[in-house]
Design a protein around this nucleic acid. Structure first.
Length: 252
DNA sequence: AAGACGGTCAACCGCATTAGT
DNA sequence: GACTAATGCGGTTGACCGTCT
């Protein structure tokens, strides 16, 4: 945990909005060196920021795979479901919404969803919409997207960031979905760097481990609702995580 | 046209937790 | 076990922008 960095060498830390130049420095540094000690990142990257600020900027804005843009109705439903069971556990929610940062979910909740819920509760306390939401949220495993996922004929995802998979799942090399899925272990992935040495695309044949199924299915269902893959920063992803010949999912 | 107001979002702050010494 | 520093997390702030009056 401790990091032998020369934090004291930093005279003062810049605050406020990030400039494009700063973004580029941070992105270039992480893509080239991977994630290590955040306190040393600004020094090595030539930024007058503290490590905390760099981490936030990376996770909320620069990290490849971030979706950005409007939340879909499905994503909002997931947030409502999770919030009713987890409360204000934004980081836990973000694990169920690949491509969304905890900050993004939190902001969307405070700016929109919270009011929506309040309005809904006030207008129809005994309405079916409220009761249906509560019935959905009584058990995380019984969420509507989980139910519909079990139906046949769904398109399978072709590619997943390892960061989108919970650490619990990633403890095994075998993942519990049917078919082939490309799991990407990019150099910035804390989960992937040690196990896969980064910069690899692993084409995994997935097995049927029941105890892992629900979490991964949840994740995949979310993925299936992504309509426009171009909203992802695929260029950054592939340039950093693969060599051109390895991009088996390039056709996505 | 311009000021007020409200909504959104990026970023900061402070506390809690984790992990090394 | 105590101390210390790094990191994670949630709450809050402030800048910006669009709409309203």
């Amino acid at each position: 945990m401790k990091c032998k960095s020369s934090v004291n060498l930093i005279p003062k830390h810049k605050k406020g909005l990030w400039s494009p130049d700063e973004d580029e420095k941070l992105r270039d540094y992480i893509l080239n060196h991977g994630l290590g000690c955040w306190s040393s990142v600004p020094i090595n990257a030539g930024l007058q920021r503290n490590g905390k600020s760099c981490r936030l900027r990376w996770t909320n804005y620069l990290r490849p795979g971030l979706k950005r843009g409007m939340f879909t109705a499905h994503e909002e439903q997931i947030i409502l479901t999770l919030h009713s069971t987890l409360g204000n556990k934004w980081s836990q929610m973000s694990r169920h919404l690949p491509g969304r940062s905890d900050n993004e979910i939190k902001n969307h909740w405070h700016s929109y969803l919270k009011k929506k819920v309040v309005k809904s509760d006030a207008s129809n306390e005994d309405s079916s919409s409220v009761s249906s939401l509560k019935s959905v949220t009584s058990s995380p495993e019984s969420s509507p997207h989980m139910d519909s996922l079990s139906t046949a004929g769904k398109i399978q995802p072709k590619i997943l960031f390892v960061d989108w998979i919970s650490p619990a799942i990633d403890n095994s090399d075998e993942l519990s979905v049917s078919g082939d899925v490309d799991v990407i272990y990019p150099p910035w992935s804390s989960q992937g760097t040690t196990k896969k040495e980064g910069s690899r695309v692993s084409n995994l044949n997935l097995s049927n481990e029941v105890d892992m199924e629900s979490d991964l299915n949840d994740l995949i269902y979310t993925y299936l609702n992504i309509n426009d893959v171009n909203m992802y920063n695929w260029d950054d992803l592939y340039s950093a995580s693969t060599t051109p010949s390895q991009s088996s999912s390039r056709s996505l």
